[in-house]
Simulated scan of single mutants.
Amino acid sequence: MAVYTTDHSEGVLKTHLWRTAENSAAYLLPHIRPAMNILDVGCGPGSITADLAQRVPQGYVTAIDYVSDPLDGARSLAASRGVHNVTFQVGDIHSLEFPDNTFDVVHVHQVLQHIADPVQALREMRRVVKPGGIVAARESAALSWFPDNEGISAWEELSDRMGRARGGNPHPGRYIHSWAEKAGFARDQITRSADSWCFSSDEQRAYWGGSMGQRATSSGYSQVAVGEGFATQETLDLIAQGWKQYREDGQGWFGILHGEILCRK
């Protein structure tokens, strides 16, 4: 039931590996305690997972992804950091293979927008978290950039169209709290917040623009776009050129607003 429009190729993993607990889960960190048992859903290459595991030295982190592709890399990353209180395995967010009331925290980052039934996913996460525990979710809500860029505009339009056509919900951060209510959390159990990423320095533009340009030329994203008739190769070339222009422009700026929820059971 995943409707992901790309894969785990080099350009995709490059953007995911940049993510840390500090830049992607700061809203959750004040609630982490050393002996907690955490479930990280949609862990990808494990960079956030390893950070969380280091914060629970007397606890444990179980991490799942819907395919096995990134998990060997995630295990290697954790081992390279000396993190051993973690397990990586394949799992389905819509039907978690864990008993009720198992985890102190269930964390998910940029995953609900890529699945067929986010309410069912949150319902499952609520089921497996302990009474008094936390379900934490963070999703993109809006994009902005400077200067105007025809290629990036084409990328945004194509990505949105592909995601919706495949059953996803692009950039749902502004309303994920409404999904949480439908999943069974009372309104007064849900804390809402927002945070952002910004890529504007030479180093940040090289990383973000370079990895996004790679997605347009050599990833599952480009294969789906052309193979399923969403775009022509000319459109992908325009997108790649747009990211190149952004990367090379000293005034280039790209921002992403995220919506966040902490849900108490």
Rank of each mutant, 00 (worst) to 15 (best):
A116F: 13
Q113I: 15
E10G: 07
F199I: 12
S68N: 06
G250D: 11
S178R: 10
A50G: 09
V226W: 07
Q233M: 06
R75K: 15
V86K: 07
G242S: 01
D148K: 10
G255I: 06
P172Q: 10
E203S: 13
I32G: 01
P57H: 02
V135G: 01
L39N: 02
F199S: 13
L158P: 00
V67S: 14
G220Y: 01
G168V: 02
G133Y: 05
V83D: 04
E157W: 00
S200E: 09
L71A: 09
A79N: 13
D40C: 12
K244S: 12
R126N: 15
T232H: 03
T217V: 11
I134N: 04
T235Q: 07
Q113N: 15
V129N: 02
S76F: 01
C198E: 14
G255S: 12
T191L: 14
E124K: 11
A116L: 15
I64H: 01
L39P: 00
R166Q: 12
W179H: 07
A225L: 04
D92C: 12
D202A: 15
W179Y: 13
Q214D: 12
V108H: 06
E22R: 14
G184I: 07
D92G: 14
F230Y: 11
R123M: 11
L39E: 00
D148H: 12
T232Y: 05
A2L: 07
R138C: 10
Y4A: 04
Y66C: 14
G227S: 08
A35S: 11
N85S: 04
R19A: 09
I261M: 10
